[in-house]
Write a protein that binds this DNA or RNA. Structure first.
Lengths: 151, 151
DNA sequence: CTTGACTCTGTACCTAGGTACGGAGTGTAG
DNA sequence: CTACACTCCGTACCTAGGTACAGAGTCAAG
């Protein structure tokens, strides 16, 4: 084991696949805690590596840094705040589920688009992406979308 | 019908539920086309309302303005570029599907978290969100995550 | 005990996606 | 034909999430 090799900011950055400046930025934003310092140098733990990786993962899935910060704070709170933690998690779960539905509708619209408008055999010039997404993101069908503007 | 009432920038903005400045911004970015002008005033079509709504919808689902611009350009291109359009759509579909999987994994992790760590009966103090997301985002189980840093 | 890689702090700068403002012209109801 | 809402253009400013210095100190191999 290499317990003797300290995890400096550069080591952490490389392990989490981010820039050194990003780590410092996260610290300024209080997303990760200020680590212990020896001779002015930051020394991190393996926990910190896991945390930064988690931050990047959550970010990739659409969480903002503020949301991530909040999640991480939950994680450190003691048992009396469990009901708050639970409620926040459940709210977030609902939000993500909604987002998943919208993404699924987007995939469907794009599939219709590429199977009709994108197909040289089937396509008509009046078949547009716009139509594919309208009518509650459901169809592209004839290529003529109904008038939705109430004209 | 009110064909005689022109769709000015303010009308468009209200219809699409965005600010007037946002419309101007989209035009600067060439996300929507420069409309015809009479006496210096922009006059939009119902198509423009649909387009701006689509832009906001796509944005909400995680598309950047550059991606949206590209999609809208597909939409206006003529038949000889159909294969390109189709390929781009298919690529985008794959990207979105990946994102959906990740979001589903996130939901699972959050559900495990709220059912264990968030539950006052079951929770142990060493049960953390970090653990819930690790091991390929699959479990929180005992509350002690395996060491993933290769130490 | 020097040299080069690494780290420190603070501040400035960058892109994306808007938002606000100033000073001028337009359009329309009374 | 005046008032007021609306629009014009250009430019400046804002937040989020970084990224890049500069000038100084530290660490470790040779």
């Amino acid at each position: 084991m290499n317990e003797n090799k300290p995890i400096t900011i550069g080591v952490l950055a490389k392990a989490a696949n981010v820039g050194v400046e990003t780590i410092r930025f996260y610290q300024r934003k209080a997303i990760i805690e200020q680590p212990l310092k020896t001779n002015g140098y930051r020394h991190y733990s393996n926990e910190d590596i896991r945390t930064v990786r988690l931050v990047k993962k959550l970010q990739g899935v659409g969480f903002s840094l503020d949301e991530i910060k909040e999640l991480l704070i939950f994680d450190h709170c003691c048992s009396e705040s469990r009901s708050v933690v639970k409620q926040k998690s459940l709210t977030k779960i609902e939000e993500i589920k909604t987002q998943i539905s919208e993404l699924q509708a987007t995939v469907e619209a794009l599939e219709v688009f590429s199977n009709t408008c994108g197909s040289s055999e089937i396509a008509e010039t009046n078949c547009h992406l716009l139509d594919c997404f309208e009518n509650h993101w459901q169809c592209c069908s004839t290529g003529n979308a109904p008038n939705l503007t109430g004209e």
